[in-house]
Nucleic acid binder design. Structure first.
Length: 258
DNA sequence: ATGGTAGCGCTGCTA
């Protein structure tokens, strides 16, 4: 079973690239983030033509998450359970069950700057995700949480930690919030397989960062032991970050022997 | 060099 995650940074702009990528990467499940679409504008027909069922949770303009599957798509749930409409929730979390695996597509808030309300909201969002795992999932079952975490878990996931010191994505509280997911029972599948530094999934569009190798590994596939023990291969597909109109993120693929 | 690009949508915000 091949599971992938990709922050596409506008599905409207990226659809041709996503369709092309699906045709050669052939994931069984694809989690997308930052579709920037309302549900009514989601191109479900384009994906069904390629053999994928889909679920989307979007508000338009910003955020927006999706799950595509060609191995079944059941029990779809948008947002945090127990979330009320008056919270004005942003579309950052979507659950679905695909061939018996509980899959989440997550887009963690950016945080902007330390010491801001946005940064505190990011930490609170990650804490709420941990809380939802505790109340809604069994760590002994097959659970995979995929997405753009906007956190680089360790210094080896950052092109130059000294350049980002004091900024978001690498601060100890953010890393602790991700570690708390690990403590619940999720492991960073890419890191089970590769120890290399200098492997990134996001590069700023500005200043030629991609071509200069200045990136961060912030897109993660986190899996419970029942899944992680079966992970056999992982790849961050840098090829998809090249060419015309690329996203600023590359997709991450993981193969599980299921 | 305190910059730079991309997307949304039409002015400046978000990343």
């Amino acid at each position: 079973m091949r599971i992938a995650t990709w922050n596409v940074n506008s599905l409207k702009v990226r659809l041709p690239k996503v369709e092309e990528w699906l045709a050669y990467a052939r994931p069984d499940v694809l989690c997308m983030q930052e579709t920037k679409l309302a549900d009514g504008a989601f191109p479900a027909l384009a994906f069904s033509a390629l053999g994928y069922e889909s679920a989307h949770y979007g508000e338009g303009r910003w955020n927006g998450v999706a799950v595509l599957s060609r191995v079944g798509l059941d029990d779809v749930a948008a947002g945090f359970s127990g979330q009320t409409a008056d919270e004005g929730a942003e579309a950052r979390l979507l659950w679905a069950t695909c061939a018996g695996v509980r899959v989440a597509s997550v887009y963690v808030p950016n945080g902007r700057q330390l010491g801001t309300e946005h940064y505190e909201a990011k930490l609170a969002w990650l804490a709420r995700l941990r809380q939802q795992l505790e109340t809604g999932c069994d760590p002994a079952s097959q659970v995979v949480v995929c997405g753009d975490f906007n956190v680089a878990p360790e210094d080896r996931d950052v092109w130059d930690p000294s350049k980002l010191h004091g900024g978001t994505h690498i601060s100890p509280p953010e890393r602790e919030a991700v570690a708390a997911l690990r403590d619940w029972g999720l492991s960073d599948v890419f890191r089970q397989i590769y120890a290399d530094s200098g492997v990134y999934s996001w590069w700023d569009y500005r200043a030629g960062d991609f071509h200069q190798g200045r990136g961060l590994r912030i897109d993660l596939v986190l899996a419970t032991k029942a899944m992680a023990d079966r992970a056999s291969w992982a790849l961050i597909d840098r090829q998809a970050r090249k060419g015309k109109l690329p996203s600023d993120h590359a997709p991450l693929l993981v193969d599980f022997d299921l």
